[in-house]
């Protein structure tokens, strides 16, 4: 009987204990303003983006290799590192991203893509997104050699301020590919 109790206690303690402890810790911290932030696993395979003041980083959902989850005044911005297969056309990638937006919400709607350009001059695609009752934009830029891409998803509800949406646009436009990259 003791063995059953110990084994069951281990399973319950790990499964319930860690999430409970995690929930007790504060989730956000101030994101550094004006400092280029890395998104991507290695220097040559990563991009940089810069935030203005006022952004918070959702630490539990952020890993610089793959994704930054940021929030400001009712706006949530996810900056994610993608690795589309080489040869994926912009149209195929946009259709794929439309599918991805439906993973969280089957009724998500992504508009047809429009051209987007970073301040560095990298061209990409952007569109309007409605997901989980919130609205915003989805923008994707391929690295110069096409080996990876950076995706920003900006969403906000009725409480999202125009200033925060504009700040998200500026952060998106700041995406740069400094390394030789893939």
């Amino acid at each position: 009987m003791r063995a059953v109790l110990i084994a069951a206690a281990v399973v319950v303690a790990l499964t319930a204990g860690w999430p409970t402890l995690e929930a007790l810790l504060p989730d956000t911290g101030a994101a550094p303003a004006g400092t280029p932030l890395r998104i991507g696993p290695e220097d040559d395979d990563s991009a940089r983006f810069t935030l203005g003041p006022g952004w918070s980083v959702v630490r539990a959902e952020t890993s610089p290799d793959r994704s930054w989850m940021l929030s400001r005044e009712g706006v949530v911005m996810d900056v994610a590192y993608l690795t589309p297969a080489r040869g994926t056309t912009p149209a195929a990638l946009w259709n794929g991203l439309r599918d991805v937006t439906r993973v969280q919400d089957p009724d998500a709607a992504l508009s047809a893509p429009a051209p987007a350009t970073t301040r560095q001059g990298v061209r990409g695609q952007t569109g309007r997104l409605r997901q989980n009752g919130e609205t915003g934009t989805l923008t994707v830029f391929r690295s110069p050699r096409g080996g990876f891409a950076v995706l920003t998803t900006v969403l906000g509800g009725v409480d999202a301020t125009a200033a925060a949406r504009a700040a998200a646009e500026r952060a998106t436009a700041s995406i740069a590919f400094p390394g030789r990259g893939r």
């Binding site: 999430p19 995690e22 810790l25 989730d27 539990a60 890993s63």
Partner: peptide, 11 residues
């Protein structure tokens, strides 16, 4: 469990 403990490390 992993999500919880990884969250703790991140925080």
């Amino acid at each position: 469990a992993n999500s919880g403990l990884m969250g703790i490390w991140s925080k």
